[in-house]
Computed example of a mutant assay.
Amino acid sequence: MTAVQFGIFTIGDVTVDPVSGRRPTENERIRMMTAMALKAEEVGLDVFATGEHHNPPFVPSAPPVLLANLAARTERLLLSTSTTLITTNDPVKIAEDYALLQHLAEGRLDLMTGRGNTPSVYPWFGQDHRDAIPLAAENYALLHTLWRRERVTWQGEFRTPLQNFTSTPRPLDGVPPFVWHGSVRSPEVAEKAAFYGDGFFVNNIFAPTGHYKPLVEFYRERYAHHGHGAPEQAVVGLGGQTFIKPRSQDAINGFRPYYNNSPVYGGGPALEEVAARTPLTVGSPQHAIEKTLEFREIYGDYQRQLFHVDHGGMPLEAALEQIEILGTEVVPVLRKEMESIRRPGVPDAPVHPAVPRD
């Protein structure tokens, strides 16, 4: 593993391809996500991460199941979530599911907690979205404790009490999975990540480039305040979105139908305008390298960069091409460049001690 981990993430949407007019089946979409992960390992990327959704048009409702399948089919790839819903999942179930998955993956497992952005999901799991922030805080406090204490007696506001409870299996070699706290806008999330000494992952996709700099700086300051190390030792991850072709104009032309088809981008400003002012990267490999290096200039040294590559109904062949270009033309240069300018004392990307670092 390298000082900075590079990988891909998916939200697993089942969307009509605006070019072919075809909508994949759920089975095809699930198999597409699997193929993307296998391709990521083949071309030397470090991480594959999946979102968690419980509503159409998304299919990844059970990330541990998908990641367990990938654990059996990969050897080196780190497996992660790009959201584990800390609000609507029972922390006891999270503790046990991901500890078991950590064993199956021989340590190649971490996760990113988040509140999610679909209020309608909360009542399906017996919760109220108006309690999202205190619910997330309470559930994560319990999860953190369950992985670090063998017998837990606990009482909170949102679930039944526990008496001398032991979650099983215990984390691999006594080391819990590393946790990233994902955020779109909330300083409460940055504070929680800093308090526990965990990683902080910022969305860094749709907002203007540099929008999250104050939030990252706040996290770094609070990380130091809570005694985990200097601000530059805090563990930061960034999202991103790419569409790359050998020629930039071909990338723009190829991505435009998917951009226009997007529920987020469609109907808004032109592709060129959004790509110019946000982290959306549409262009040549060199353009992708230069734009990603700008992230480092803005946020400082960081430990994980994930790219979204299967947007808006994009077919498998196009997504695999993106992964190939990232793995062979973009990421090797980024690794070299980021390593050459990394400041002394900045920690490597986190991995379980059981995972080889070479």
Score class of each variant (00 low, 15 high):
354 A>V: 09
226 H>K: 00
237 G>V: 01
181 H>A: 04
160 T>A: 15
85 L>C: 09
61 S>I: 04
315 P>A: 02
154 W>L: 14
45 L>F: 07
106 E>W: 07
325 I>N: 03
105 A>W: 04
158 F>V: 09
333 V>A: 10
173 D>G: 02
167 S>E: 10
80 S>D: 12
350 P>T: 01
129 H>P: 14
319 A>R: 00
287 H>V: 06
2 T>D: 14
23 R>G: 12
16 V>K: 15
144 H>N: 15
91 P>R: 03
302 Y>R: 00
272 E>C: 07
24 P>A: 09
345 G>H: 05
116 G>D: 06
351 V>W: 01
221 E>R: 07
301 D>V: 02
245 K>D: 14
178 F>Q: 05
250 D>S: 11
241 Q>T: 12
215 L>A: 08
297 E>A: 13
139 N>F: 13
259 Y>D: 10
36 M>H: 05
209 T>G: 01
167 S>Y: 01
330 V>I: 09
171 P>S: 07
286 Q>C: 00
143 L>Q: 11
339 E>A: 15
77 L>I: 02
253 N>S: 13
169 P>L: 07
287 H>E: 15
46 D>K: 00
320 L>S: 01
149 R>N: 13
44 G>M: 04
226 H>P: 01
298 I>L: 12
152 V>M: 10
287 H>R: 06
185 R>C: 02
255 F>S: 03
64 P>Q: 08
240 G>C: 06
103 H>M: 11
153 T>P: 10
71 A>G: 11
219 Y>D: 04
94 I>A: 05
104 L>E: 07
228 H>G: 06
287 H>C: 00
118 T>P: 03
141 A>S: 15
324 E>A: 04
202 V>D: 04
271 L>D: 12
252 I>V: 15
295 F>Y: 13
168 T>A: 15
296 R>K: 08
307 F>M: 13
104 L>P: 01
185 R>E: 10
319 A>I: 00
309 V>T: 10
106 E>H: 15
146 L>D: 06
227 G>E: 08
294 E>P: 00
120 S>M: 13
93 K>V: 14
294 E>C: 01
222 R>Q: 11
325 I>H: 03
190 A>P: 03
187 P>D: 03
185 R>S: 13
